[in-house]
Design a protein around this nucleic acid. Structure first.
Lengths: 213, 213
DNA sequence: GCCTTATATTATCATCCGATAACATGAGGA
DNA sequence: TCCTCATGTTATCGGATGATAATATAAGGC
């Protein structure tokens, strides 16, 4: 009995993302990933070279999806109306929150890997994380120059934003137990995004707040 | 050649925390934990019943340390001067940030476990996380009632606060690569705590900000 | 100084893992 | 029609892991 599928690569990638996100690289097993899509474990070594290569392909795929989601943002580059800059930034945060909810695997994998230095971490940081980091830093710097946004260094603002935006979805199983709510529900996600934007940019939905220092 | 130590239990606990924080439960190996303190792997099964029991003892130990750190906060219980409530809350956030920097293992373990439902997760949530969650919820509710704090539901505020406060320390290896700074440096930690407090309570260090909704 | 008991050390087992080899099968071209 | 080659399937290997049994050794009571 032989089963052939032409989308087996994509199916394995999707299963790998879920498994790596939930269990981390070490906790995930290639046998269990294959089983998720009714495939055999050696098919992973056939379609990808190794467990590591599967992981890298899955991460590449996921960051590409994130890139698509944020591609047409066009955060204004030159000196601009602060209000327009703030609303563009708010939109970026909202999209990032939505993506974190729809694809928790990305931030789960980030957090599983970033707890220890490793080749995988360095690869992911150099290839995917640094561009995002630099973009957030640049926008935050301009928000602060415009007197919007709390007095916090751009590098630190990055961690406030990413940490806050991703935790309820990274820890969705915990959030379900703790709050009784389903953090991936559309309404929950939008409400969380609203709250986060209001926290980061208290002046954006009303009169602007100017920080003294 | 036989080696005897009366603090072997504590040494194993400390090594286990580092290992579980860095690699997660599955990625950690009892051999490597024992090796960190020049002990033999079966000593773990002797002094603790199993790998799981070691993990639980380590988590208990760590949450006890956090409890000590936050014990004397005495967040005012009755109706109070909003400014005093805000400053007590700010102090709680600062302490939590300092603890997250000094003991990244706690939030690392949380995040490793919370990506998937499991008995370990449920045990940790019921035993340790829920009390903290309820405390943050209650304080945030009163901050909002006092017109301080962004318009975000208390349950969601919990994730904003914990996510933001812990990420640069949970992901310290990533933060070192990304920012070039050492996130556990005293100055960095204090600056991060300042920035987070300023973000959460924009009115706390100057004229208060009142949110319309 | 012996004896008991707690703990350290060594040896070993069953299980699981990632990888690879060996084999089977089916689709497409000549 | 047959041959080739890509891919599915099965079997198996070496290595690591958690647990436990077996043994060794030191400390403390008498």
């Amino acid at each position: 009995m032989r089963r052939t599928r032409d989308d087996i690569r994509e199916q394995l990638l999707g299963a790998a993302l879920v498994e790596f996100g939930a269990k981390g690289f070490d906790g995930a097993s290639t046998r269990s990933i294959a089983q998720r899509v009714n495939a055999h474990q050696p098919q992973i070594n056939y379609h990808f070279a190794s467990k590591e290569a599967l992981w890298a392909a899955a991460v590449d795929h996921l960051f590409a999806l994130l890139g698509d989601e944020l591609a047409d943002l066009a955060l204004p580059g030159g000196p601009e109306d602060p209000a327009r800059l703030a609303s563009a930034f708010a939109e970026a945060v909202r999209r990032f929150v939505r993506f974190a909810a729809a694809h928790p695997e990305l931030n789960q994998i980030m957090v599983h890997e970033a707890t220890e230095d490793s080749d995988r971490l360095r690869w992911m940081v150099d290839r995917h994380v640094r561009p995002m980091y630099e973009a957030i830093r640049a926008v935050w710097q301009r928000l602060r120059a415009a007197g919007i946004g709390a007095p916090i260094e751009p590098a630190m603002a990055h961690y406030v934003i990413v940490g806050a935006a991703s935790l309820p979805f990274v820890n969705a199983p915990e959030a379900r137990l703790l709050t009784g709510a389903e953090p991936t529900d559309r309404a929950w996600v939008e409400s969380y995004a609203d709250g986060l934007v209001a926290t980061l940019l208290p002046g954006a939905s009303g009169r602007p707040v100017r920080f003294s220092s």
